[in-house]
């Protein structure tokens, strides 16, 4: 979980930084989108690097989910009889309780997001538009439910990172009493920055600050 999670965190940060290009205008954003596909040219053919990244990502997501599912299965196996009374949680932090359902929501969102932006099958603008137009179309006030879904998913991503980054360090045995505070702060910062960075785009579109 920790290793694949790490790959995904790195990707999310880059993805978010890329998204922010939208504030530089349509040309910059579309250009960035094109640059991603031509990255590595002419040394390698069109879309090689991006495809490689996509493969690593897909693999990471699958392994991440597979780990989560097997941990969940193992947990169910480890406690075949449940408690009758509602079990109270005493662990610190809210984020830790969002990991499982949050993960599922995020996974569903990623599927929709791929259909929307990569395979272009559910996007209001579809194939004929530029990436910039597609984004703008998605987050129009009339499509408020898309925006809402996006924001909920991204907030969950933030929470996921809030616990996940710290947890990954714990799993890898890199957390110690000495670096604990720093790690918690780092995890909180990454979670918050990623969530806010992603959310800034649809909010700006909805309120007409961009587009």
């Amino acid at each position: 979980m920790a290793v694949t999670g790490g790959v995904l965190v790195l990707y999310l940060v880059l993805h978010m930084v890329g998204n922010l290009k939208i504030f530089y205008g349509a040309e910059d954003f579309n250009h960035y989108s094109h640059w991603l596909r031509t990255l590595g040219e002419p040394a390698v053919p069109y879309r090689t690097v991006l495809t490689a990244i996509e493969v690593v990502l897909a693999l990471s997501i699958v392994l991440h989910m597979w780990s989560a599912i097997s941990l969940g299965k193992r947990a169910a196996h480890a406690r075949p009889v449940k408690y009758k009374s509602k079990k109270k949680s005493h662990a610190q932090g809210y984020a830790v309780h969002t990991m499982r359902y949050g993960g599922i929501v995020i996974a569903l969102y990623v599927i929709w997001h791929l259909l929307d932006m990569t395979f272009l099958v559910v996007n209001p603008k579809g194939r004929d538009a530029t990436p910039y137009e597609r984004v703008i179309a998605d987050f129009q006030p009339s499509h408020w439910y898309i925006t809402l879904f996006y924001i909920v998913a991204v907030l969950l991503v933030g929470l996921h990172l809030r616990h996940g980054v710290w947890s990954a360090m714990q799993t890898l045995g890199l957390r110690s009493p000495r670096n604990d505070r720093a790690l918690r702060a780092l995890a909180a910062t990454i979670g918050a920055v990623v969530a806010l960075g992603f959310i800034s785009v649809p909010v700006s579109v909805t309120f007409g600050w961009v587009g």
Partner: peptide, 15 residues
């Protein structure tokens, strides 16, 4: 022994 895996929830320390 059939114990589950750790997901660093911290419930153990709290209990």
């Amino acid at each position: 022994a059939g114990f589950g895996g750790c997901t660093n929830t911290g419930e153990c320390t709290a209990a």
